[in-house]
């Protein structure tokens, strides 16, 4: 999938992104590139923008009557606007040791950070407020939500971590995240999810219970999905897992099977709780994350609109 010179998406290629060292630059680059690459996007605009006129029916808020139309036509029309949102988005980013695996241009950690920065930038650009919580064995950094575009700097800084540690109990960590975020908002959970599933799902459930809008970005390296190793290899477990010397080809089928079970379990767990789940490979273009996010937003909006209309 070679990026052509006139293809605006060329900037979204992980290899290209990897060449940009500064994360905020990356985010800007990615988001600008992303937006400019979208033509006539129906999602463009913000919450105070006018959408359409509709005939008044009894029960409508008369404040939304367009009097100018009434004056001209003598009919009552409701002037409809995008619902103004005051979105608080918190990005929960996994910076544990396992995120540091990766053989491609970006490891999972870099990829997750880039994706998080991009999302943050995109949100900030939409003048939503964005906060960041990083965690490994415990919550590491907490950046409160701000909507100023300059907030991106703080977020990017917080992503940096010197000594990654292993994850412990995801439930505990997610409880703390729940406690940290007081008001209802959107939570973007970016992690490789290489933890025990029941506590993870319980933690996610907890977030869901708090009426947060949870979105899971499951970042995995291609190696982890394909397991392309050959020859006798000693796999040294990250995060204090035991090591194993084996012929990887012999175990590949079993590995892929176990991985499939895991992915199904995770996906099913998320879907059961209404959590939006996306599996992201580190070789995927970054716009995948963004487009998934925007799809999600649109889904929320339409559901909110449906609720509103109802």
């Amino acid at each position: 999938m070679a990026a052509k010179a006139d293809d605006p998406r060329r900037f979204l290629h992980p290899e290209t992104i990897a060449r940009i060292s500064r994360l905020d630059m990356r985010a800007r680059h990615v988001v600008e590139g992303f937006i400019s690459g979208m033509h006539r996007s129906p999602f463009f605009g913000h919450s105070v923008e006018f959408i359409q006129h509709r005939e008044y029916v009894p029960g409508d808020d008369i404040r939304h009557l367009d009097w100018k139309v009434w004056s001209k036509t003598d009919r009552y029309y409701i002037k409809q606007f995008e619902e103004e949102t005051n979105l608080r988005c918190t990005i929960v980013l996994d910076v544990s040791e396992s995120m540091h695996y990766g053989r491609g241009p970006l490891n999972k950690y870099s990829y997750a950070c880039t994706a998080a920065a991009c999302l943050a930038y995109l949100l900030l650009k939409q003048q939503d407020s964005v906060g960041l919580i990083t965690f490994d064995s415990d919550v590491r950094q907490v950046v409160p939500s701000r909507s100023a575009i300059t907030h991106i700097d703080a977020i990017v800084k917080a992503m940096d971590v010197s000594k990654p540690r292993e994850k412990t109990d995801p439930e505990k960590i997610l409880r703390r995240v729940t406690e940290t975020i007081s008001s209802r908002g959107m939570i973007l959970f970016v992690s490789d999810l290489l933890v025990d599933r029941p506590p993870l799902l319980r933690g996610l459930e907890m977030l869901q219970h708090r009426r947060h809008d949870v979105m899971v970005f499951h970042v995995l390296d291609d190696d982890e999905l394909v397991f392309p190793f050959t020859g006798t290899t000693r796999f040294e477990g990250m995060e204090e897992l035991p090591q194993l010397t084996c012929d990887p080809r012999a175990l590949r089928d079993g590995y892929l099977e176990a991985l499939e079970e895991y992915l199904v379990e995770v996906r099913r767990g998320c879907v059961n709780q209404g959590i939006d789940y996306s599996l992201i490979k580190t070789s995927d273009y970054l716009d995948a994350v963004l487009s998934k996010f925007l799809h999600h937003r649109m889904a929320i909006k339409s559901s909110a609109k449906a609720r509103t209309n109802a």
């Binding site: 290489l194 796999f235 477990g237």
Partner: peptide, 8 residues
């Protein structure tokens, strides 16, 4: 160094 030891 391998993260997904669990499946392995």
């Amino acid at each position: 160094r391998w993260a997904a030891m669990e499946f392995l």
